[in-house]
């Protein structure tokens, strides 16, 4: 009895760390990482402009405008990303056909564009709240001083409040990017060739149930952990020059 159990356990440990698939399947992972980074970075960048609009709408005194932006943000923050992906990627984009075209040789825009738009729509809701918070954190006296000089609300926002809000916004925005790198793994579940999809596919092809995912986890960690540390460092440095 005992030797059998031991040998099964031994096999388990061995397969857990069996990375023999790497020489053959490495491109899956390297392209997967690139795909993931493209998705996440692209989604957050695309999200910034609509997020700024949403944030300004949320700060508006006009109730109607306020409610529209508030509703958008509430919906996207209160439903799972996977559900949103399914509705937008599988649902909405089944009606809008995008031609198959490969960029960088492995990114099919017919899938990539619906995916990145889904992520960006989700991210816009979170980034809007980040921007709103950043604007509200700027001393109220700044806007008052600008308005007292005759600047319009728009000019005051553009020349005085926003440039100061950016300092509050950037660290949180970088954190949103890290979140997006992790969350974009859901895109693998609906068939986009990002990092998690690579792990799943390799797992299926090699019957390895652990090591491909461990590798994926390690890669995510090696991107996000240092990135988080760098953000912390930059944040601290920016704080230092703050007391004006």
């Amino acid at each position: 009895m005992t030797p059998v159990v031991l040998s099964t356990f031994g096999t388990m440990v061995r397969t857990m760390f069996d990375f023999s698939f790497l020489p053959g399947y490495l491109p899956y992972f390297t392209q997967g990482v690139a795909y993931t980074l493209l998705l996440a970075l692209g989604a957050v960048l695309i999200a910034i402009i609509p997020a700024l609009g949403l944030a300004l709408m949320r700060l508006s005194k006009n109730k109607f405008i306020n409610i529209i932006a508030g509703g958008y943000i509430a919906i996207f923050r209160s439903t799972p990303l996977y559900v949103q992906l399914s509705i937008i990627y599988l649902g909405v984009f089944s009606m809008i056909k995008i031609p198959t075209f490969y960029i960088f040789g492995f990114v099919n825009i017919a899938m990539f564009i619906p995916g990145i738009i889904s992520l960006a729509l989700n991210s816009a809701a979170y980034v809007a709240e980040i921007i709103r918070g950043g604007i509200l954190a700027v001393d109220q006296g700044q806007g008052e001083a600008a308005r007292s000089l005759g600047l319009t609300q728009g000019q005051s926002m553009r020349y005085v409040v926003l440039p100061q809000a950016i300092k509050n916004i950037l660290p949180s925005l970088a954190n949103e990017l890290i979140t997006m790198i992790k969350e974009s793994s859901l895109c693998g579940a609906i068939g986009m060739y990002e990092l998690m999809w690579a792990a799943k596919t390799v797992g299926g092809a090699t019957f390895l149930t652990m090591s491909p995912y461990l590798l994926a986890a390690a890669v995510y960690f090696c991107i996000n952990f240092p990135a988080g540390k760098i953000i912390e460092l930059l944040e601290r440095r920016m704080r230092r020059g703050d007391h004006r």
């Binding site: 006296g141 008052e144 001083a145 600008a146 000089l149 005759g150 440039p163 004006r244």
Partner: peptide, 30 residues
């Protein structure tokens, strides 16, 4: 408001601008 200057208790100078930029912002933009 252009014709009414206001001075605040806590100065409210724009910290991201030099003195000269603080002074020329409103005349040039408004």
């Amino acid at each position: 408001r252009q014709r009414m200057g206001m001075v605040f208790q806590h100065f409210n100078l724009f910290p991201h601008m030099t003195v000269m930029e603080n002074l020329t912002l409103a005349p040039t933009k408004v």
